[in-house]
Amino acid sequence: MNQTVLMTWEWLTDPANWQGRGGILAQSLEHLRLSFVALLVAALIAVPTGLWVGHTGRLRWAAVNLTGAVRAIPSLGVLFVAVLLLLPRLRGELAFELPALIVLVALAVPPILSGTYAGVDATDPAARDAARGVGMTGGQVLRQVEIPGALPLIMSGLRSAMLQIIGTATIAAIVGLGGLGRFLIDGQASRQYDQMAGGAIAVAALALLVDQALALLQRVVVSPGLSSAARVR
């Protein structure tokens, strides 16, 4: 046990493992790139949809049930299905990346969608009524009252979507995707536990860092009036 910890430590602290094309640094950046692309695409789909569902109240049941239903679907299985279906139809670089990206986006949409929907839906009915009553148009109510009020839940939706993405991107190394998952999968294949464990530590650290960064962003964008710290003294 001490031996493996030591080996993992040595692997992690060896500068050679950090540099170069397949190094920890490059793979971290690749992992981040894939994750943020997926998050961005998912948010572009899910946030407007969630706002629409929340603002109009239409398709509410779908938004409510979607997250639960998708959570039950095993991401590894879906990943393999996507690759088997799409790989023969794609060429070049895209062939490796696209199926995985589609799965990452598909898994990230529900948490963002339901967070956005729930955030808008949770707007104080009195505030919404007052907003209309003082003469805001539908768009103004959405922009000035519902979206700012929904931000905490939109942000937590984004955070859980990002965790899902980072985790799934890790296992997507098995279908050839770049990123830190490579160390875990390649280490497994070549029976090099130090590389697996070192990569696992790097992934865990990356996930924690990104989550904390998003938490920080949440603090910046969410009005202090909405945080639980702002209560009657």
Binding site: A126, A127, A130, A131, G133, G225, L226
Partner: peptide, 10 residues
């Protein structure tokens, strides 16, 4: 209105 309906983020 009854519960004031203030915008909590402002």
């Amino acid at each position: 209105i009854q519960h004031a309906g203030l915008f909590p983020h402002r």
